[in-house]
């Protein structure tokens, strides 16, 4: 098996049904997907389409009720227990009583790294997200964008190959968001990680991804999988090119097809 064809995430006929007092809710149904090593996969769709749920299934924060899924060739639970992924949430979720460096060291403490090892990893990941010099600050002293970068650094600190990001820039304004998207691409190129990225922004999905998974709600399902034809090197201006707009158009069509506004 060569390097690039290895499936980091592989889902077959995956389904998840929540039992609620109003009856069953089909959060995911019949999801087939392969994420190859080194891919940057975006999940896009309206709220309720199951994109976050799918990410949480990969992370073993939810259990699938049908079908199969493997993460790094293991069950999600085994993958979580062997700390195969870093997870970035919608909010930074930094601990307010810890400095930025202590926040990034949190997973390292839990995983039992030595003090010296922790210090060198913290310094390295702070550099990756351009936060060197802010290590002794507390979260409230940083802007929202910087806090989210710190939370990305925390997910990177323990060198998991897979990065799961759940609308990490959703709460930030567009200018900060553009900047962070650019940085994220550079970081992805430098670290060669596999990234699964949930978003509801079409430009963000097209700009970042090698593969775009379009999803639709009720039941949550995959309606289209688009392999990006954009080059690996992507300046922000690429968003004005016909190629970019063509992919964005296809995403928009996919979203429209899967979504009936009458419901």
């Amino acid at each position: 098996m060569n390097e690039s064809s290895f499936s980091v995430v592989s889902a077959k006929k995956l389904g998840l049904t929540f039992q609620t007092s109003d009856g069953p809710v089909h959060a995911l149904s019949n999801v087939d997907l392969d994420v190859k090593r080194g891919d940057f996969v975006s999940f896009i769709g309206p709220s309720g389409c199951g994109k976050t749920t799918f990410l949480r299934v990969i992370a073993d924060l939810e259990k699938a009720t049908a079908g199969e899924i493997t993460v790094n060739g293991m069950t999600p639970e085994e993958a979580r227990k062997s700390r195969s992924y870093g997870y970035v949430f919608q909010a930074p979720a930094l601990y307010p009583w810890r400095t930025i460096e202590k926040n990034i060291a949190l997973p390292l403490e839990i995983m039992g790294h030595s003090k010296m090892e922790r210090a060198s990893r913290v310094a390295r990941t702070l550099d990756l997200v351009n936060l060197t010099g802010f290590s002794k600050k507390y979260p409230w002293q940083l802007s929202g964008g910087m806090q989210q970068r710190a939370s990305i650094a925390r997910a990177l600190a323990f060198d998991a190959d897979l990065l799961l990001m759940d609308e990490p820039f959703g709460a930030l304004d567009e200018i900060v968001r553009d900047h962070l998207n650019e940085q994220l691409l550079k970081l992805w190129a430098r670290t060669r990680k596999t990234i699964c990225f949930v978003t509801h922004s079409i430009p963000e999905a097209v700009y970042l991804s090698t593969k775009i998974v379009v999803m639709s709600p009720r039941p949550g399902r995959v309606t289209d999988i688009i392999d990006s034809t954009l080059p690996k090197e992507r300046p922000l201006e690429i968003r004005e090119t016909p190629e970019f707009l063509a992919i964005a158009h296809r995403v928009r069509e996919g979203l429209r097809a899967g979504h009936s506004y009458e419901e």
Binding site: R80, R83, G86, Y87, F89, I110, M111
Partner: peptide, 8 residues
């Protein structure tokens, strides 16, 4: 959830 992802 974060703690859970670390298998804490």
């Amino acid at each position: 959830d974060l703690m859970r992802t670390y298998n804490a």
